[in-house]
């Protein structure tokens, strides 16, 4: 693991002053969808949930 981190440090050599980051490689903005309802068959989802009780997803205790 440390060996890999050392390898990552290689990027320290690069001077990136005033260089903006490229978070998104495509140059598109403002992608929206209209405010419309489409109902998904929730039974298809809850079917794959490991533990369900009265349609609640059943999880372990909190504390």
């Amino acid at each position: 693991m440390n060996e890999i981190l050392d390898y990552f440090k290689k990027i320290d050599e690069v001077d990136v002053e005033n260089i903006p980051p490229t978070y998104h490689v495509v140059n598109i903005v403002n992608v929206f969808r209209p405010d419309e309802v489409r109902v998904f068959d929730a039974n298809k989802i809850i079917k794959i949930t490991p533990r369900v009780k009265e349609r609640y997803v059943k999880g372990p205790k909190a504390i």
């Binding site: 349609r55 997803v57 059943k58 372990p60 205790k61």
Partner: peptide
């Protein structure tokens, strides 16, 4: 929350 043995999630 402290006493419950389960968590129900909706």
């Amino acid at each position: 929350i402290e006493s419950s043995n389960v968590t129900y999630i909706d």
